[in-house]
Design a protein around this nucleic acid. Structure first.
Lengths: 105, 105
DNA sequence: ATCCTAGTTCGAGATGCATCGAACTACGGC
DNA sequence: GCCGTAGTTCGATGCATCTCGAACTAGGAT
């Protein structure tokens, strides 16, 4: 297993972030992580196989939207709400309407 | 040439809109249309061929982001800022930061 | 050591997308 | 009618993406 890498906030590109958010599965994942929730991959209830979920989480991570933290045998995923808000103010809020999007944190 | 159709505001899907916005060329087009500008296709200075531009405009139109109005021999394109704002409040503003995005119109 | 659980990586298949040039349509002017 | 301009549609090409199952890795429990 290769080490997990995250782009720095300044590297986030708007097309990249929008593309990452343009898939229903990934949008559901981001929705499950609103309000600062941190969940292990397995707690994300999306209707895809384990390998597909792993792929989507990599896309979100590479786009700079999520942070993956290793804890024992599992990986905890959370939204990089602050970084995204700093780069693209208001974006998370507009994409996750029924939530504070933790953007003010 | 088939007749030009536009989806009604209620049909706009968030993944669809985000996907339409996730291409740099289309993002540039939307940027050129901010603040209520209405331009003929040819006035959009993007570095792609005519057929590719036509394709991108169709993607934006089908996603519900733009309105195409026929006037003589040319097609005038404009942002459906009000409709998008009603469906996804704040989205245009966050994607077109250096502009009012005409969303309050 | 053995096993289980959690998740990643590796092909592979099917689909979608961006791009182009060429052919086409439609309107306006001469 | 004839031509030019504006834009669309039609393949075709090459690349990206979504999806899966199978094989793999790594940590924890027994």
């Amino acid at each position: 297993m290769r080490s997990i890498t995250h782009p720095v906030a300044e590297q986030l590109s708007l097309p990249g972030v929008l593309h990452a958010l343009s898939d229903p599965v990934r949008l559901a994942i981001v929705g499950a992580l609103r309000d600062g929730a941190e969940l292990p991959c397995g707690m994300l209830s999306v209707p895809v196989s384990k390998s597909t979920l792993s792929h989507h989480l990599k896309v979100l991570r590479d786009a700079g939207l999520t942070l993956t933290r290793v804890e024992g045998v599992q990986r905890h995923v959370s939204l990089r709400a602050e970084d995204v808000e700093r780069r693209f103010p208001g974006l998370l809020r507009s994409v996750l309407p029924h939530s504070s999007a933790s953007a003010a944190a």
